[in-house]
Structure formats: C-alpha cells, structure tokens
C-alpha cells in the first residue's frame, strides 16, 4: 500500500502539470485587459461636494489625524457666512496606503475613495495632489447628505429650518 501510494504520488504531479499546460492561463494581461474591480475598491481619494454644489470639507483635520501615514495636510479658514473650508488641502499619494481610515473619520462625507488605482508615475511630486486635483463636481457615493443641513448650525439655512429639525426652543417659554 505504502509503495503504491508513493509511486502514485510521484507520477500524478506529472499528469497534473501536463494537463495544466493545455489550459488557459488565469493571468489578466494588465494594460490590455483590466480586472473587474469590486464596487467598494479603495484607491485614489477625492473631495466631494454636497447636493447644493458647495464643498463638503469643513477642514476639521479629522482625516489627517486618522491617517496612519500622515499624508494629509490642510489649512482651515472661514468664509464670511461662517462656513469653514480648507484654504489648501494636500494629499501625498506617494505615502498614502489606501487604507480608507480618512473616509471613516470624515464627519461630512467629504473625503471619499474611488476605484482609480492607476496612479503610478516617475515624478514623485506629481503624486502630491492639491485641492484642485482632489475636488470633484459630484457627491460621490451619497447624493443626499449635507452636513450643514443636519447639524443645527445656521449656515446653509437658519437654525431649525432644516429637514427633520425642530425650531430652537425659546428659553423664555420654558419657565415653570
């Protein structure tokens, strides 16, 4: 029994390799053929806009704090109407590891991942993306969320008038 198994074990692999030789390889020939990527593939980051067309990012620095490789930096400023935004916003894609932690941290859904992974290049500085390169003209994967209309801050609309909000209580009414 031992011997038979040994002999079988010696010759079977030859049959397996021979058979494989006449099968179609499973290789995807990359530049010509492309892989079907999963819908939630994590690659290049973008900064999205809210449904009203304004920038979502409020320059809260949460993404740069969450980033394990510290590749996000920005400068926060405030507009006339009290709206916070990033004066400049920079992601160094030579360091980014596409972990997606920044998107998890973002309270406004501003920073989001896309499936575009073809970032390779010879000039490293070209991989440092500025705000112009990051900012897109759509809402990304959420078409309805608008931070300023949820949080009770009277910037996009006066306080209490946003959907699902009750008007602020009149403190004088609450007297016993």
């Amino acid at each position: 029994m031992h011997v038979i198994r040994g002999i079988r074990g010696t010759f079977q692999p030859f049959w397996v390799t021979l058979r494989n030789m006449f099968r179609k390889p499973v290789t995807i020939q990359y530049p010509e053929e492309k892989q079907q990527l999963p819908e939630r593939y994590r690659a290049r980051l973008i900064l999205t806009r809210d449904p009203d067309g304004a920038e979502r990012c409020v320059a809260c620095h949460l993404c740069s704090a969450a980033c394990p490789v510290d590749c996000i930096s920005m400068q926060a400023t405030e507009a006339e109407d009290g709206r916070r935004y990033a004066a400049w916003f920079r992601i160094n894609f030579t360091r980014c590891i596409f972990c997606g932690l920044c998107t998890e941290a973002c309270p406004t859904l501003a920073i989001q991942v896309t499936a575009d992974f073809e970032l390779a290049g010879r000039d490293l500085l070209k991989l440092v993306y500025e705000k112009e390169d990051l900012l897109v003209d759509h809402c990304g994967n959420n078409n309805s969320y608008n931070f300023y209309r949820q949080s009770g801050i009277g910037v996009a609309a006066p306080r209490g008038t946003n959907p699902g909000e009750t008007p602020p209580a009149d403190v004088k009414d609450l007297m016993p």
């Binding site: 390799t17 021979l18 030789m21 099968r23 020939q29």
Partner: peptide, 9 residues
C-alpha cells in the same frame, strides 16, 4: 513552460 504549467503566461 513553467508558467503555463502553473496557469500563467
């Protein structure tokens, strides 16, 4: 040949 036997090109 090795490649083909391992389902590569």
């Amino acid at each position: 040949i090795l490649g083909r036997m391992q389902l590569r090109y």
